[in-house]
Design a protein around this nucleic acid. Structure first.
Lengths: 218, 218
DNA sequence: CATAAGAATAAGGCTATCCTAAACAATATA
DNA sequence: TATATTGTTTAGGATAGCCTTATTCTTATG
């Protein structure tokens, strides 16, 4: 069983657990772009390896062992994102894919040294928390921008769709990057589209997009 | 066909071509630690892909296309070695393996930015030349230490067995690192064992080992 | 030049991962 | 509650890459 493949399954499951628990076969299939049948098969393998709990028709959940692997992978992924962004000058829109490849090629030693070199940062360029070597799942801070009411303001913390570089480029064009101050001027009653103020200019952003942006209310 | 596997074959063939041309099935099998039969099979696949020339029973040689891929991989490998050594503080004995993994996970963009970040170095921590983006195979400079005569001195340029960390540790203990000045005091007529002077102290080194160390005669 | 030794390939098999199509389970609806 | 819809698993099959064993080719030697 290729280590790489296993890791990709663990990552999907771990990420999906934030929203759905246990995680359904079809969600995993969609994220990994494989057939549901392949996922069923793989879940049985991961079960045998003690990485997930799994009951046919009952979805999957990471075991302690699986979760540990997942967090370590997330840590490596985000450390590489920091490196790519901070030292190689690659934009936050484009660091996800390369980090995805690099994380699977990172030994314990390199992960540790890389962490030290970067001064063990707390967040990746998208603002998402970087798990510590101590294995606790960090919680995604803040609430969705879409949940602010008209008149409320907040500070952007992170974005939770870091793999979508088109989306990130769009956010950049709006000035919506981690740390940015944003105020909701209006919410459309029809579909929730937001009128916001960023950098002293007024912009519009759809409900869908706004629900992927986490802010700290001010 | 996994990209990774293809790349590993190309690398073995490219490296072996320095000493043997065309490259025999069994040499590749030995380097990759797979059976000769598997190599035969793979060579047919690489042939179809236009990456090697290959005639059954006649060995293999990289095509222009194959050579380009090989040089690019070598470049990435050695750039990562420089990074691991210079920025993460990993010793030259230990940079080979991690670089081996990372090189296959490196996109064109990352390779280019990494090169710039490192200031496009000319050599890796083992002293081996780093191919330029312009695709010419760099010549390994110098001659084997084992070829110096008694009384001759030289400056160490590089080592050509960079994957053997035990060997590298041994060289470190002798003070034999790239740039070191070394003088041959005596060569045993029996088996060529050398008595050398490095850093004002006298050491012994076997013929085999000494043939892997390249020096520039002074 | 015949043959033995060594190298390479062919034949046949194994496993991991994926697929499609068909069967089956769970859920929502009438 | 019966049934339609949706989601999941099973069955059967493909391919990549590896293996072992048996055969074939090349080459070196008597």
């Amino acid at each position: 069983m290729s280590e790489r493949t296993v890791e990709e399954y663990l990552e999907s499951i771990g990420a999906l657990e934030e929203r759905e628990s246990p995680v359904s076969t079809s969600s995993i299939a969609q994220v990994l772009e494989v057939s549901p049948a392949s996922v069923s098969e793989m879940l049985r393998r991961l079960l045998r390896k003690g990485l997930v709990e799994y009951h046919p028709y009952g979805g999957a959940a990471l075991t302690e062992k699986g979760r540990r692997r997942f967090l370590e992978l997330t840590r490596r992924h985000r450390l590489w994102e920091v490196f790519l962004n901070r030292y190689l000058g690659i934009g936050w829109e484009d660091v996800y894919q390369p980090a995805c490849s690099l994380e699977h090629a990172t030994s314990d030693l390199v992960a540790e040294k890389l962490g030290k070199f970067l001064d063990n940062p707390d967040v990746c360029p998208h603002g998402s928390p970087i798990p510590k070597s101590n294995l606790k799942r960090p919680k995604v801070p803040g609430i969705p921008l879409a949940d602010l009411e008209a008149g409320q303001a907040g500070k952007m913390v992170c974005v939770v769709s870091e793999s979508n570089s088109k989306f990130l480029r769009y956010l950049t064009s709006l000035g919506l990057i981690p740390g940015a101050k944003v105020k909701v001027l209006e919410k459309a009653s029809f579909d929730g589209t937001l009128t916001i103020e960023v950098n002293n200019s007024t912009k519009a952003i759809g409900r869908e997009a706004a629900s992927l942006i986490m802010v700290e209310p001010v």
